[in-house]
Every structure is written in C-alpha cells, then in structure tokens.
C-alpha cells in the first residue's frame, strides 16, 4: 500500500516527464518519414546514428525527471502536515523511505527505457535497422551514470525542510555543479554528461558502442548513489517529526 501511495503521489510527475521524454522519439519518427526506405537499407549505420541522436537530448530531460521524482519524502510531508499519519503506521522509517526510493527509482528506469521501447516499435513498424545492444547500453549509461541525481534529490529532501525549498536547492545544485564542471578546472570530474551520453565510447563510423564500456564510472556513480540513499535513510531514522 505504501507503493500504491507513492505511485499516486508521483504519477502526475511521472506522466509529465514521460511525455517530455518521448519527444525525441517523435522527432525520430519524423526523420524516418523524410528519407526513402532505400536509404536505410543501404546504410544501416545512419539509422543507428539517428537512434543515438534521440539518446542525447533525453539526457537533460531524464536528469530533470530524476531530480523531480527524487524530491518529496517525509520532510515535505511534514511541511504539508501528513508525516504524522505516515509515521504512526506500523512500518519502520527505513521501510517508508525505501518504498519511496523503490517507486521513484523504478519510475526513473521506466523513463529511461520508454523512448527505446518506442524507438524499437517504430523501427519494427517502419522496418528500419535497430540495435538492441545499443539501446541497452544507452539505458545503462543513462541510469547507471545518472541515478546519482535521483539519489542526491532524495538526500536533499531528507535534509532540507519546506514544501518547495528542497526542489529549489536541488535544481540550484544541479546547475551549480554543471557550471563548476564546465568552467572551473579541477571540477571536470563532476561532469556526468560524458558518462551518461557515452559519446567517448561511440564508434563514429558505425554509431555503435564497440566497447570497452566505462564500468568504473558507472560503478563510482552507482556507489555514490547508494551512499546518498543510505545517508537519507539514516538521517530520516534519527530525525524528530
């Protein structure tokens, strides 16, 4: 039931993000209509390039969505006055936070998968080349590299009180870190775009990922996410409501 409540609470956010996430796929569908079928069969790598082209704009949208879905939780509930109801249920605080994180993370993964499911369907329908491996890598890079934004939003929501304060702080943080990574030397490691986009690992001739893939980067990002989520649970368990 906590899952159901978390879903009802976030479903509009999710649906809005899903709609925006599918916009690049709409463009892909539009592009397919421009060129004749012969073009695709003679050069399948162009199709892969076009598919990879839908991945790049989705990074920014997905990052925004991950932050959007990570916000909320018990401190926001306290601001709107419902934390008492949640915390007097016979469930542990870790369970409450865990459920929210589980539903939010599932939604972010679904958002990463959705464009590729649509792209795959379009390709199947239009009989154009489609690489499942390429799609899988793009989803893995997006989620594995970018889930840290979701985890950071969960952590900030566990620390900062107020109905919209956490949201404002989190978006300021995302832009602030992006600015530092781009403009200040020594902070470039904070720039997750190369990892999430996979542009450094793409073969420019085939528009496919030949490998090796950035497992270390994914592992580092995933570990940071896990630590942030653990910190969020610990803070919530110790906090007065």
């Amino acid at each position: 039931m906590l899952c159901y409540r978390a879903w009802v609470e976030t479903r509009w956010r999710f649906l809005i993000c899903l709609t925006v996430m599918l916009l690049p796929s709409v463009l892909y569908f539009h592009e397919l209509g421009i060129f004749p079928m012969q073009h695709w069969t003679s050069d399948p790598h162009y199709a892969y390039g076009l598919l990879f082209g839908t991945h790049l704009p989705s990074i920014g949208i997905w990052t925004f969505a991950a932050v959007f879905l990570g916000l909320g939780g018990l401190l926001r509930e306290r601001a709107v006055g419902t934390s008492t109801l949640t915390l007097t249920l016979p469930v542990s605080r870790a369970h409450v936070v865990g459920t929210r994180v589980g539903v939010g993370a599932s939604e972010t993964v679904a958002l990463a998968l959705a464009p590729w499911i649509v792209n795959s369907s379009i390709s199947l329908f239009e009989r154009t080349p489609f690489s499942r491996a390429q799609a899988g890598w793009c989803v893995l890079l997006l989620v594995g590299g970018g889930l840290v934004y979701f985890a950071c939003a969960v952590l900030v929501s566990s620390v900062v009180e107020g109905e919209y304060t956490a949201a404002a702080l989190m978006f300021a943080l995302v832009y602030g870190i992006g600015y530092l990574a781009d403009h200040v030397s020594g902070f470039s490691a904070l720039n997750l775009y190369p990892l999430m986009s996979g542009t450094r690992y793409l073969d420019r001739n085939t528009n496919l990922f030949p490998g090796p893939m950035p497992w270390l980067g994914i592992l580092a990002s995933s570990s940071a996410s896990a630590l942030m989520l653990l910190a969020a649970v610990t803070i919530t368990r110790r906090r007065d409501f």
Binding site: T82, S83, T88, L89, P90, R93
Partner: peptide
C-alpha cells in the same frame, strides 16, 4: 524503533491536525 513499530500495530491514533493524504 522496532518495539515501537510493533506497538503501533495495536494503537489507533488521531492526531491534532487530522493529517490525511490530500491526493
């Protein structure tokens, strides 16, 4: 916390501000 959670399964509580999920 664990014992308190167990106790809450047998307690009905109505808070002062009557909190309910608005959505």
């Amino acid at each position: 916390p664990e014992l308190n959670r167990q106790a809450r399964a047998h307690i009905a509580y109505v808070a002062e501000d009557k909190p309910l999920y608005r959505y």
